[in-house]
Simulated assay, not measured.
Amino acid sequence: MHGQYKIPGGKLVVVDLELDQGRLHQVQVSGDFFIEPDSALALINQALQGQPADAGHATFSAAIQAALPADVQLYGISADGVAVAVQRALGLGDAA
């Protein structure tokens, strides 16, 4: 499954994932944004891994925010933007 979202005033975020028994699996977030340190991208992927597909935008966003240490810098991307891309990958549009 594939979803994309161009964050207003920001960058493109892309989410590729599979479903396994109703849960997000093989989650890969990519795009033309920047994260420092680069290793924090793995934390975003891990935060989404195993989430119920019907968890919803707020849960996806909160899981991402909770997984990122305070010193992580996001440039052109946000947890909410990634959540929108996840929703789109799941065929749910932009529902919050």
Rank of each mutant, 00 (worst) to 15 (best):
D20T: 08
M1R: 11
L24R: 02
V84L: 05
D16C: 00
F33C: 02
A53M: 06
Q28S: 12
G31R: 00
Q51G: 09
V72F: 03
A42E: 13
S61R: 12
G31Y: 03
H57W: 08
V15F: 00
F34M: 15
A66P: 09
P69S: 01
V82K: 05
D94W: 08
A42T: 09
Q21K: 15
A89T: 11
Q87N: 15
F33L: 01
A85V: 11
A58H: 11
D71S: 13
V84P: 02
G10S: 14
G56E: 12
A85D: 02
H57S: 13
I44E: 04
R23I: 02
L19S: 06
D80P: 09
L41R: 02
Q49D: 08
D38N: 13
D20R: 15
A53I: 05
A83M: 07
V27F: 03
A96R: 14
A83D: 02
G22W: 06
V14L: 11
S61M: 05
L12N: 07
G22S: 05
G50N: 13
Q46N: 08
A53V: 10
D32R: 08
K6W: 09
Q26P: 07
G91V: 03
G91F: 02
A67H: 04
Q21A: 15
V86S: 02
K6I: 02
L12D: 04
V27T: 01
G91I: 04
K11S: 07
S30K: 09
A67W: 07
D94Y: 09
Q4C: 10
L48M: 11
G10P: 06
I35W: 01
L92V: 08
I7V: 15
S61Y: 03
G22Y: 04
D38M: 01
L12E: 00
L74A: 06
D20N: 14
A47H: 06
A89M: 05
D16G: 13
V72W: 08
V27S: 07
V29M: 04
P69W: 05
F60L: 10
D54S: 13
H57M: 06
Y5C: 01
E18S: 12
D54K: 11
A89H: 12
Q87L: 14
A42Y: 01
L24T: 01
L68P: 01
L43H: 10
T59P: 03
Q46M: 13
I44A: 01
A62T: 14
L48G: 04
G76T: 15
V13G: 00
V29G: 12
L24H: 05
V14S: 14
A58S: 14
A47G: 14
A67G: 06
Q28W: 05
D20P: 08
A95S: 14
L24F: 06
L68I: 09
S39G: 03
N45D: 15
F34D: 13
V27L: 13
V86W: 09
S61E: 12
Q26M: 07
